[in-house]
Design a protein around this nucleic acid. Structure first.
Length: 344
DNA sequence: AATATCCGCAACCGCTCCGAC
DNA sequence: CGTCGGAGCGGTTGCGGATAT
């Protein structure tokens, strides 16, 4: 048995709201408060569905809403939380005072998703695309190619997602490390995929536990905690070490086998394979649980590892050329893969 | 200047959840 | 315990402005 419609669809107005209609909603809420939205159209003198009235109020008319653009801090928080809990927009929006789930969802779909894709990060898994393709290869039983080969087989796909050139900070010195105060984010850093380096395990458990408990009273302090740099492990390795040569190409770097990131299963941190290997050697299996503790040494190790990789890239252009040649060989060897769609 | 295309946002749709009865 | 209906959620659509051709 189907459910009856909430209102007479043929007898209600739809589409954009007029200022007069907005005024009626505002006046009604001022006098009666929110609740029982099905009665609101009749009582407020509107020819709208009650559900539509509720949406108009919650998404636009509520006095506590912000209508200006998202700040970089809000961006970071959205990306982090999406990486941890996925498209749970209402939960994410609760972390952003003055923002609605619709705001967050729209901002994600129109801006952030594209931004991540341009940085070579899969917006669904928040992993580097090369790794996603590698995982896909192992799942779908492709020939036993390496991660690097998979990434280059799909170079066309990758090039659609990656910027051709990296955005440089105006006036920055390319040959030196750009130092910032703790917690301060250089303006150009937002072009760099540091957002993926999160302790998603901590965030997920924390956010979901709060979602489960509707009586939580500590959300305001937790906003700061989640948005703070301390929530990152190995924060902004690329930013901490400015590209040591002027013709550094981030898209090549992201596609290189040295940029082969994985989710550290014990810490929940996305790290390079090289760093994972180092961690395994130095720490054994007794990884500590505290994310902030791990972030300090992680940042150093990760930064050093990245610096080495960047230097390696810049020193050896022939290395890149060699990879491209290898790419051509693989394309010729597996032409059927070029036509495959990669829905994941 | 006119037209086509892209992009962002507001609104809608269909579904699930949950409390009241 | 089952049904009903309000509220909320996430995905999608469509409009209007901005930009490109």
């Amino acid at each position: 048995m189907g459910r009856p419609p909430c209102c007479d669809k043929s007898n209600v107005k739809r589409g954009l709201w007029t200022p007069e209609e907005d005024a009626k909603i505002l006046a009604y809420v001022a006098n009666h408060g929110t609740g029982n939205w099905t009665l609101v159209p009749k009582k407020a003198g509107l020819k709208r569905c009650g559900k539509s009235c509720r949406l108009r109020w919650t998404n636009y008319l509520r006095p506590d809403l912000k209508h200006d653009g998202f700040t970089p801090q809000e961006e970071e928080l959205i990306i982090n939380l999406h990486g941890a809990i996925g498209s749970r927009w209402s939960i994410i929006a609760k972390r952003l005072p003055g923002r609605t789930d619709n705001d967050v969802k729209n901002y994600w779909n129109t801006k952030l998703r594209k931004k991540l894709m341009k940085m070579g990060i899969d917006p669904v898994t928040h992993k580097p695309v090369s790794q996603v393709l590698s995982d896909l290869g192992s799942i779908s039983g492709l020939p036993n190619t390496t991660t690097n080969q998979i990434a280059f087989i799909n170079k066309d796909l990758m090039s659609n997602m990656l910027p051709i050139t990296k955005t440089e900070p105006s006036g920055s010195n390319n040959s030196t490390v750009e130092h910032t105060q703790e917690g301060q984010v250089p303006s150009w850093e937002h072009h760099i995929p540091y957002q993926v380096i999160i302790n998603s395990e901590n965030i997920q458990s924390h956010v979901l536990s709060e979602a489960a408990s509707s009586t939580s009273s500590s959300s305001s302090s937790n906003i700061t905690q989640l948005g703070s740099p301390q929530s990152y492990s190995c924060q902004t390795p690329q930013a901490q070490i400015a590209p040591p040569c002027s013709n550094f190409d981030w898209s090549e770097f992201l596609q290189s086998d040295s940029f082969n990131w994985s989710l550290n299963p014990s810490s929940g941190i996305i790290q390079s394979e090289a760093e994972l290997s180092n961690n395994a050697k130095s720490n054994g299996n007794d990884m500590q649980g505290d994310a902030s503790e791990g972030s300090g040494s992680g940042a150093v190790a990760c930064g050093a590892s990245m610096e080495y990789q960047i230097n390696k890239q810049c020193e050896a252009h022939s290395f890149v050329d060699g990879i491209l040649d290898r790419n051509s060989e693989i394309r010729a060897a597996f032409p059927e893969l070029l036509d495959a769609s990669f829905d994941y």
